[in-house]
Simulated scan of single mutants.
Amino acid sequence: MDYYAIVHNDFDGTASAAVYARAVNSLPKKTFFTEPTKIHDLLGKLELRGVNNIMIADIGINASTLETTLKNLKRLISEGAKVQWFDHHVWKEDWKKKLNEIGVEVYHDTSTCGAGVIVKYLIPNDEFSKKLASADCSVDIWLHDDPMGEKLRRVVESNRDYSWKEYLIKKFYQGILWDEEFEKILIDQVDKELKGYEKLQKYVRLLEIDGKKVVVAVRWKGPPDISYASQFLMNRYNAIVFASVNGKAISFRSNIIEVRKYAEKLGGGGHPLAAGAGLKAPFWRFFLHRLGYRKPMLDWVSNIVKNVINDIGFVPYQKKDVPM
């Protein structure tokens, strides 16, 4: 079957593309890696070129771009496309209704990760896909209950090139979960992470909001990635929320606070404990940050984080059982 895969540009997106390929017994004609804030633009530019099947996975809906997304999907469907959308982020029921009305098959389940949704609905008896989804969910929705997830995430994120993720999709499709190549990458990544932790203090600021500690950061180059760094910094400073900016977006992390509410306030979304939103920094602050002057960016993000937390408060996350 010829199809296009449109997935998030992270481990969950990569795993989602792989398990879908195993479900339909075919690799995609082309894989597009994108983000929820850019899906509407990608769909607007997409040309079918004889490929009439489109799968979208691990891409949430943003209220601000919903209408444009619907418009662009309508155009593709009118040209003969069949669209399946698999996701696990929080959606409004109205969004699913609108997508269904224009002919999109929506598979939505917040109890698992993106790859887990596909396994659950398309390929529940494939042992390899279940193992890959288990590892993926462990790190993507912060379950931390499968050691393979910590290993594979480092492998997937070791190279930001999309060609690397396409290569991994092929390996996973072939049923390769771990091999010597991955082992060497893991050793190299862990070594880089250990060196990277030493420099993190230069990029962070500790806030106290309503008697609770919050770490804010401007993004650094190289390992550790945001998920591992956020855990390290929250533990080091006894903080309950972590927020970071890279000039284009803001990300939130926590182990006990529902940070998705902060992301939603800023026009984004995500998981209860890991979420984000588009947030463009003023050019002069971003420019100074690139030159090594981090204070202007830290001042800016600190004010944004203070304001959004003061508006929302600290809402404890109510953990739910996650079946896999």
Results as ranks from 00 to 15, higher is better:
Phe128Arg: 01
Lys130His: 13
Lys130Trp: 04
Leu132Ala: 05
Ala135Val: 11
Cys137Arg: 09
Ser138Leu: 08
Val139Glu: 03
Val139Cys: 03
Asp140Glu: 12
Ile141Ser: 02
Ile141Trp: 05
Asp145Tyr: 03
Asp146Arg: 02
Asp146Gly: 03
Met148Gly: 15
Met148Ser: 12
Met148Trp: 08
Gly149Lys: 09
Gly149Leu: 12
Glu150Leu: 09
Lys151Cys: 01
Arg153Pro: 14
Arg154Tyr: 03
Arg154Ile: 05
Val155Arg: 02
Val156Asp: 05
Val156His: 08
Glu157His: 06
Ser158Met: 15
Asp161Asn: 06
Asp161Arg: 06
Ser163Lys: 13
Trp164Ala: 01
Trp164Val: 02
Lys165Asn: 08
Tyr167His: 11
Leu168Trp: 06
Leu168Ala: 09
Leu168Gly: 01
Ile169Tyr: 04
Lys171Gly: 01
Tyr173Gly: 02
Leu177Lys: 07
Leu177Arg: 01
Leu177Gln: 08
Trp178Tyr: 04
Asp179Phe: 13
Glu180Gln: 12
Glu180Met: 09
Glu180Tyr: 11
Glu181Gly: 07
Phe182Ser: 04
Lys184Pro: 13
Lys184Trp: 06
Lys184Phe: 11
Ile185Phe: 11
Ile185Gly: 04
Ile187Gln: 15
Asp188Gln: 13
Asp188Pro: 06
Asp191Cys: 13
Lys192Gln: 02
Lys192Asn: 06
Lys195Glu: 07
Tyr197Cys: 14
Tyr197Phe: 14
Glu198Asn: 05
Lys199Met: 04
Leu200Asn: 01
Leu200Tyr: 05
Leu200Met: 03
Arg205His: 00
Arg205Trp: 01
Arg205Cys: 00
Leu206Ile: 02
Leu207Arg: 00
Ile209Thr: 07
Lys212Asp: 08
Lys212Tyr: 08
Lys213Phe: 07
Lys213His: 11
Lys213Ile: 04
Lys213Thr: 02
Val216Leu: 05
Val216Thr: 12
Ala217Arg: 05
Ala217Pro: 15
Arg219Met: 09
Arg219His: 10
Lys221Pro: 09
Gly222His: 14
Pro223Met: 01
Pro223Trp: 11
Pro224His: 08
Pro224Tyr: 14
Asp225Gln: 12
Asp225Phe: 10
Ile226Leu: 01
Ser227Tyr: 15
Tyr228Asn: 15
Tyr228Ser: 12
Ala229Arg: 00
Ala229Asp: 07
Ser230Ala: 04
Phe232Arg: 08
Met234Glu: 13
Met234Arg: 03
Asn235Val: 11
Arg236Gln: 08
Arg236Glu: 10
Asn238Asp: 14
Asn238Ala: 10
Asn238Leu: 10
Asn238Cys: 11
Val241Met: 08
Ala243Phe: 09
Ser244Pro: 03
Val245Arg: 01
Val245Cys: 00
Val245Asn: 00
Asn246Cys: 05
Gly247Asp: 04
Lys248Ala: 13
Lys248Trp: 13
Ala249Lys: 09
Ala249His: 10
Ile250Glu: 01
Ser251Asp: 14
Ser251Ile: 11
Phe252Asn: 05
Ser254Phe: 06
Ile256Asp: 05
Glu258Trp: 14
